[in-house]
Design a protein around this nucleic acid. Structure first.
Length: 264
DNA sequence: ATGACAGTTGAAAACTGA
């Protein structure tokens, strides 16, 4: 199963790019973030026409996440458990049927849009850290199921200095500061595998490039979109790649997709 | 040192993002 995550930075502004990418790469499951539209406005028919079942949790103007799958799935949680009062649409979890002949009936996936947290001196940063603590608790609970679990999305976390073009410039940013990295490691240390880091430990491979200052052309990027795998999912890990192609197209998102291939 | 870019809302300029 090929499972991809993509922060699209507005689905309405990006629909043509996203459809082109889906037709080209045909992931079995696609996890979207920053759809920036309400659930009702989600252009589901365009995706259904490509053979996907679609579920979205959106809101006006900002945030919003979605799951698309070629196999059937059921929504398990439309918000982060333990944080259900969150007014921001940042989490959606589902049980996805595996293809015919698989060892297991389903895998569990979540699409995650973790708060940015800047500026750090405002309430935005404690909101980010609290959100990460809720995510850690959910991640711990999911381990008890002993299912293959894929927690994918825009984490807004630069895990190490090898994941940013200029570590000094970013050291105090909400995406890189020590408290952020420590909380991210706490999730990993529960027993999750950062799929890309595991297969590509060389570093300096990015999933985001700012629109400004020629960041894309200079490869001034960040690795902030991640696919975290439970042990049972990591057992199945075949490949994990960043697909830079969509970032080089006209009117791109500032993020590009990253995907895993799991032999389930 | 600062701003640079792109999206949303809503009709100009403010807000958000990473």
């Amino acid at each position: 199963m090929k499972i991809a995550t993509f922060n699209v930075n507005s689905l309405r502004a990006r629909l043509a790019n996203v459809l082109e990418w889906l037709k080209s790469e045909s992931p079995d499951v696609a996890l979207f973030q920053e759809i920036k539209c309400t659930t009702a406005e989600f252009p589901r028919m365009e995706f259904e026409a490509l053979g996907y079942q679609v579920e979205a949790v959106g809101q006006k103007s900002y945030n919003g996440v979605a799951i698309l799958s070629k196999t059937k799935f059921t929504v398990e949680h439309p918000a982060l458990p333990g944080n259900d009062a969150d007014e921001q649409a940042r989490y959606l979890e589902a049980a996805v049927e595996t293809p015919e002949g698989s060892q297991r009936p389903h895998i569990r996936v979540a699409t995650i849009y973790l708060p940015n947290g800047n500026p750090v001196e405002t309430e935005k940063y404690p909101y980010k850290l609290a959100w990460m603590e809720h995510l850690k608790r959910r991640a711990a609970d999911l381990l008890k199921t002993e299912e293959p679990v894929v927690l994918g999305g825009d984490y807004n976390v630069i895990p190490t200095d090898a994941d940013v073009y200029d570590p000094v410039a970013w050291a105090e940013d909400a995406l890189a500061r020590p408290q952020t990295r420590a909380k991210f490691r706490e999730i990993l240390h529960l027993g999750y595998t950062d799929a890309f880091q595991h297969l590509h430990p060389e570093g300096h491979r990015y999933t985001f490039w700012d629109y400004q200052a020629g960041a894309w052309q200079r490869d001034n990027g960040l690795r902030i979109d991640h696919l975290l795998l439970s042990p049972q999912a990591a057992d199945c890990l075949e490949k994990c790649e960043i697909d830079r192609t969509p970032r080089g197209k006209e009117k791109p998102s500032d993020h590009t997709p990253i995907w895993v291939e799991l032999r389930v």
